[in-house]
Design a protein around this nucleic acid. Sequence first.
DNA 1: CTTTGTTCTAACAGCTTTGTTAAACAATCT
DNA 2: AGATTGTTTAACAAAGCTGTTAGAACAAAG
Lengths: 224, 224
Amino acid sequence: MITSGRKVNTGRHRMLSEDTEQAILLAAEQEFMQKGYEGTKTVTIARNAGVTHAMLHYYFGTKERLFNKIFNEKMSLLGKMVTDVIFEPDMTPLEKITAVVDRHFDFLAEHPDLPRFLLNELAYNSERRRMVEHKLRFAWGKLLPPLQLDWDKMIVEEGMKPISMIDFILDVVSLNLFVFLALPVLDVVIDEFYGSRKAFFEARKRENVEIIMQRLLQNNNAYE
Amino acid sequence: MITSGRKVNTGRHRMLSEDTEQAILLAAEQEFMQKGYEGTKTVTIARNAGVTHAMLHYYFGTKERLFNKIFNEKMSLLGKMVTDVIFEPDMTPLEKITAVVDRHFDFLAEHPDLPRFLLNELAYNSERRRMVEHKLRFAWGKLLPPLQLDWDKMIVEEGMKPISMIDFILDVVSLNLFVFLALPVLDVVIDEFYGSRKAFFEARKRENVEIIMQRLLQNNNAYE
DNA sequence: CTTTGTTCTAACAGCTTTGTTAAACAATCT
DNA sequence: AGATTGTTTAACAAAGCTGTTAGAACAAAG
């Protein structure tokens, strides 16, 4: 089915068959996401793509290069998430926070395997970690300072409980990401206590928004 | 250094050299934790244990069996955590909650790689997942019902915001576990914003206790 | 229907990894 | 001493995996 047709090629020479390439990329993505770099065998990718395993090397050279293509694509997705989530329309500060948590969660629900995949490959490979470190520093060097100003202003003007922005971000990320990082294990819990993933996601999203809001609002019954 | 001496053996026969076995187990634990099942090679374990690689098979048969020994040991540790954390001394309900979150965090800090290791091997291996599923169901079948009673009582008597116990548990686990699941990536953030892991851990523990308590306490400034 | 460059297959080369085995060795028991 | 048992080594076998290559099949254009 892949070999259905050679690429129609007006410009003469030097063009690969998109279909085959795509089939390999798709199969590779599934395998790498499911089993990680080391757990994935190139022969399996080829088999799942319906292609001889020599083709995989013809198109992508090495397993490493194929993996990097997938990995970088997923890293871009992560970057896209940040920009998608961070810049919100005109709302009151509280509405903004709600919207951020909400959209962050929704994004993750659309890419449930993304966090575990990235976190893992970074945990298991120190070289990749070093590569990403630069990107991270650069990214937040540009993103954080402007946000910080808005943040401090909001805390004062809205009379919120003081909290550093970075701590707050970690709160949101912890609560939202965990749902997806632990999904393979949580599936058992979900089955028993929530019925379906959908119901579970909705419940957790509500709860995460709730707990985050409660953290920010001033509370008269001080404990301690 | 391992081959220094054969085991002195009063009890006659049928005893393996504890030293060698331990050296292999220790090296295996380090490798498996750091690189996962697939990323770990038995020759590397043997080399790090200072032992020929045939010894590894002499003592443990197969890579799988060796891995399972480590894996089960870590699962027991997880079980131990639950019992350690859940049964608290006499305190007011609010103090109890604080203590639970606190001890849960401290336990994780003593075993920072445990959650990622277990979560990963479960995510990557469906057979292991099925094995664990039974244990989980059995465990909470015994643990949850009695806790549930205390929980509902506490909510009413202390005038807390209503929240299901399971949602509350997920809140605590999300916040505490994430710190350690994401540690390899967070290290970059830590370096920049907290100085040291120790400082980061302390800050996060405080914050996690804080956000959890705020979630439970009734709040006069209702938002929405 | 030949030429030209591209896509694809089958076979294979070479390395890595897991696992086995035979024989040497050390300690203990008789 | 010699037999017995448990431990270790070195060498080997077999399978698995990544990557290569020679050339066949093919499509398009001359």
